[in-house]
C-alpha cells in the first residue's frame, strides 16, 4: 500500500517550502498576473516564462467534497474527507476539512487554511469560518 507521496516537480518546490513554513505561497505570472496551479514553467494564459511567488490569504469557498470509505494509503485510515476549495486568489486546491464533517452540504461554505503536522511533513487543512 504505502504512504501518500507529495509530487515535488522542480516548479513545486517553493510551494512545499511555503507550506512547511506555515503560509502557502502560490506562483503568479510576472506579466499577466495569472495564478499557475499546479506551479508551471510557463503561463498558460500569456506564455510568459517569468513568475513570482506570493503568499495567499488562505481563505476560500468549498466547491465540493468527498468521504473516503476505502483505504488507499497507510497514512490515511478511512473514513476521511477531502475537499476542493476555490481560493480567493482564483485556483482550486484540494485539502482536508479539519472540523467534523457536518450533516449538511459543505458547498459554498467559507474556509480558512491552517497548517498541520502529517506523518513527518507539514501540509494545509481547512477550518470552516463559521462553526457548524
Amino acid at each position: 500500500m504505502g504512504k501518500s507521496i507529495p509530487i515535488q516537480a522542480l516548479t513545486d518546490l517553493p510551494m512545499w517550502q511555503s507550506i512547511e513554513e506555515g503560509a502557502l505561497k502560490l506562483q503568479f505570472c510576472s506579466d499577466c498576473d495569472t495564478c499557475r496551479y499546479p506551479p508551471a514553467p510557463i503561463c498558460p494564459s500569456c506564455l510568459s516564462m517569468d513568475s513570482e511567488w506570493r503568499p495567499v490569504t488562505g481563505e476560500g469557498t468549498v466547491m465540493s467534497w468527498v468521504i473516503f470509505h476505502r483505504k488507499y494509503f497507510d497514512d490515511f485510515p478511512p473514513p476521511y474527507n477531502a475537499m476542493a476549495v476555490r481560493l480567493d486568489e482564483g485556483p482550486i486546491i484540494v485539502t482536508n476539512l479539519l472540523d467534523p464533517v457536518p450533516g449538511s452540504s459543505l458547498i459554498g461554505r467559507r474556509i480558512k487554511l491552517e497548517y498541520v503536522d502529517h506523518d513527518g511533513r507539514k501540509q494545509h487543512g481547512a477550518r470552516l469560518k463559521e462553526a457548524d
Binding site: S4, S64, W65, A82, N96
Partner: peptide
C-alpha cells in the same frame, strides 16, 4: 492531490458528482 489522501479516478468523479 495524494498528500491529502485524495486519490483514484473514482474519487475524482465522486468530487465532481457531489457538486
Amino acid at each position: 492531490h495524494a498528500p491529502w489522501g485524495f486519490t483514484s479516478q473514482g474519487a475524482l468523479y465522486a468530487m465532481m458528482f457531489q457538486r
